[in-house]
């Protein structure tokens, strides 16, 4: 089995699906000849041509609007928004059109659009190339929100997303695009949406995370382990629909929870996780749920390392919650 990074896994998934299904098309800024600013669409223009892999102007509302129209006419577009920070101009198209079409048409028009977009900090990108806007999309009925943390999941989840009938916001953790490497099977396989994965078993405490933060939490667990702590780590993989069963099963076992994400804490996705657990498993809890998150400031350029939850910050929360 080849060892690939997330970029290679995403590229392979796109190639497999485009070979299998002529309805799949890719559009976005620099995705064609150039192969994408992060190289995720490398080689696809050469193999499938300009009718199926094409460059667009810098006009995100146009990219997503066009993709919606193409999907309504039977194609399966996979638009790329170059950075999640640039998704806001297309926000109205996503929240008011894409998410609602199937419902508003009484089921007549499903909109199978998968929006791929790199998110998150850690690349010295400053305010406009570092944001994590997942929570807003998770609040919008009609969308699915998927965030892989590793190459295997990236490929399998992307294939599942493209084959689904509903719109998916597929957010890729750009900080670990190349750093997260792993064995990826060649050929076709899928990872189902809506299923979380236990990446480290433990008895004492449950750590909930997704995307690049999974790697931070694994490091934090190694730090905490040295001091005798035994956390369980769950990679959510799909934020909407959330795999509440896997989360609650773990919480009922451990009685303690730490949630980690890069996005600002207030009204971040961790709030939903904490609220859901407090509603459904309060009597299993032996300590208050702790959230380790980005701060409620715009993403800073110079203080990036202080802003993003570090292994030390997560490890501290693990220790404090375990000792509560």
């Amino acid at each position: 089995m080849p060892v690939w990074n997330i970029i290679q896994a995403v590229n392979d998934a796109l190639r497999i699906e485009m070979r299998r299904d002529p309805r799949v098309v890719i559009l976005g800024e620099d995705v064609g000849k150039f192969g994408g600013v992060f190289r995720a669409t490398t080689g696809l223009f050469d193999e499938f041509g300009g009718d199926r892999v094409f460059d667009t102007p810098l006009a995100e509302a146009g990219i997503i609007g066009s993709a919606i129209g193409m999907a309504l006419y039977g194609l399966r577009p996979v638009p790329e928004i170059q950075f999640a920070d640039f998704i806001y101009p297309a926000y109205d198209q996503i929240v008011n059109e894409l998410a609602k079409f199937r419902y508003r048409s009484g089921g007549q028009y499903p909109v199978p659009v998968v929006i791929r977009t790199p998110y998150g900090g850690g690349i010295r990108g400053g305010h406009y190339h570092s944001q994590s806007p997942e929570a807003y999309f998770a609040h919008t009925p009609g969308l699915k929100v998927v965030i892989p943390s590793n190459p295997y999941d990236a490929k399998g989840l992307l294939l599942s997303s493209i084959r689904g009938e509903d719109p998916v916001i597929f957010m890729e953790p750009k900080r670990v695009y190349r750093a997260a490497k792993g064995e990826v099977p060649e050929g076709d396989y899928t990872v189902p949406l809506g299923k979380a994965k236990v990446v480290r078993e433990g008895s004492q405490l449950t750590v909930l995370c997704y995307g690049a933060m999974v790697h931070t939490c694994v490091e934090a667990a190694q730090l905490a382990e040295k001091d005798g702590f035994d956390p369980e780590i769950i990679d959510l993989r799909t934020l909407l629909p959330l795999d509440t069963e896997t989360v609650l099963e773990s919480v009922r076992k451990t009685g303690r929870v730490v949630i980690a994400h890069e996005a600002p804490k207030t009204c971040g996705y961790g709030a939903e996780l904490a609220a859901m657990i407090a509603e459904k498993a309060l009597m299993s809890l032996e300590a208050p749920i702790s959230r380790v998150a980005g701060f409620d400031t715009p993403f800073p350029y110079t203080l990036e390392n202080e802003y993003m939850p570090s292994p030390d910050r997560v490890a501290l929360a693990i220790k404090q919650t375990a000792q509560f």
């Binding site: 929570a135 009204c267 939903e272 904490a274 609220a275 959230r291």
Partner: peptide, 21 residues
Amino acid sequence: EGHGFSNVGAEIVARVQRNCF
């Protein structure tokens, strides 16, 4: 009035369980 998932209520519940555990 908002939807149930990932809403303002989630933030309030998260804070209340933490501060009034």
